[in-house]
Amino acid sequence: MSDTVGPLPDDAPYRGLTVSAILHAGIIVLTLITWPRFMDIPEPPVELPVELLPVSDETNIIPMEKLEDIRPPEPEPATEPEPEPRVAVAEPQPEPEPAPIEEVPPPPTPNTEPAPEEDLTTPTPEEAPVEEVTPREKPRPPAPPAEEPDRRSEDDIIAGLTDLEDEDRPRDRAPEERTAPADRTTQGVGAQTGLTVSEIDSFKQQIAPCWNVPAGSRNPEELVVTLRVRLNRDGSLAGMPEYEDIGRVSSSGPAYRAAAESARRAVIQCAPYTLPADRYDSWQEIVLDFDPAAMAGR
């Protein structure tokens, strides 16, 4: 196994001993826990998943009605909370004629006089069926996703050669260089995903061109948006992407709302997605954390 990933560093024997000891201890402990299932296991996996995905801050799903539900094919109710009716009155600004300093330009400040409340509520849509959500023409990612088999085998070699040494790769490399890290990882990055790193990267590359990152925001780390996306077998959306924390979207202010809507637009716009058809179970529902921090300031 180790032969396939290249020569070991010089201190490997000692490190190996240490890790062996740790593994040994871990196995004994875990065996006690998992022993009852022992006999049920049919196939030995070839990989030890060691890193669990971090638990997000946003897993507290508040069970309330969706902000804007367009899934039912019926016309939208006119009572939706969205439209913020407002009335503003604008008064003239100064005339553009050049004025010597002796002349007095008209006051530049407009008076806002209260006007009768007038609503501009959402008109009844003629059509808002969920089937229409999928765009007819989907912008394709600029770089081909890694699902193309022949490309992958080539990249795989590169990945095998460079992965261990080159941990400080610049993050803005061309996408195809990043999509190929480990196809031998058949069980995926976290035990719970069921997709390979390549497949996940491929998915990310499919969304990336549609996601307009809220750049230049003051605190991009506060603008992480979590969406729950349900997909059909053909990779199309099985419904409107849902915010995990709808309360946050509606109460966190305009910056968060704009970020949330931008993430949702990205998911809708770039559908349908290409995902491994044989593992539909693992991706029929995906939770996406849109994190603009890494793109900020670029």
Binding site: G26, I27, L30, T31, I33, T34, W35, R37, F38, I41, E43, P44, P45, E47, L48, P49, L53, S56, Q187, G190, A191, Q192, T193, G194, L195, I200, F203, K204, Q205, I207, A208, P209, C210, W211, N212, V213, A215, A263, A266, S282, W283, E285, I286, V287, L288, D289, F290, D291, P292, A293, A294, M295, R298
Partner: peptide, 28 residues
């Protein structure tokens, strides 16, 4: 033993299997 460890771990997680992906790339 090793096999048991690994697969049981996976089985345990499979019960609450949820594909969670961090999208940290986009366009400006």
């Amino acid at each position: 033993l090793l096999v048991a460890l690994v697969v049981s771990g996976i089985t345990a997680f499979a019960a609450r299997a949820e594909l969670r992906i961090r999208i940290d790339e986009g366009v400006m």
